[in-house]
């Protein structure tokens, strides 16, 4: 079926439960796992980490996104997951990035992301692209 070759994109926001004291190490571990798993599953994407929220985009085959997302759903390091977007996309936005990450951002807060679910998917993608733009030049291992 041709469907399996289409790019499926999912974006979600969630509230971080990472303890502030160990945030730095936790993020290193988290990204390591994400990149290893994603590379194996053909998933690309980007992660935004604000003071209290994660916004993540996953791109890949529908099946791979589904498996990856469900694994993320079982993760106790976050809660209150809100799906911002789940749809077939014309192309990958983050091709070449097994999980792009631009360091911790100052905003927006989880409540703002979760409360504005209509505007949020746009915001999330804009934010992620903004983060990526700032990254251009400095290479992040893909």
């Amino acid at each position: 079926m041709s469907v399996t070759h289409e790019v499926f994109r999912l974006a979600y926001a969630s509230r971080s439960l990472l303890p502030e004291a160990t945030v730095a190490e936790e993020m290193v571990r988290l990204l390591e796992h994400a990149r290893r798993n994603n590379a194996a599953a053909g998933i690309t994407g980007a992660l935004l980490f604000t003071e209290d929220a994660f916004v993540q985009v996953l791109e890949g085959t529908m099946e791979a996104v589904e498996v990856t997302f469900e694994r993320i759903q079982c993760d106790p390091r976050h809660a209150e997951v809100v799906v911002l977007e789940a749809a077939v996309a014309p192309a990958r936005d983050f091709a070449g990035w097994s999980m792009a990450y631009a360091g911790r951002q100052t905003g927006p807060h989880f409540d703002a992301l979760a409360a504005r679910t209509h505007a949020a998917p746009m915001d999330a993608l804009v934010l992620l692209h903004g983060a990526l733009g700032r990254l251009s030049g400095c290479r992040v291992p893909a």
């Binding site: 759903q73 209150e80 997951v81």
Partner: peptide, 14 residues
Amino acid sequence: VELLARPYLLRGQV
């Protein structure tokens, strides 16, 4: 309760 209420992705549908 919180864990089970997280969204499920089922064949592309939430």
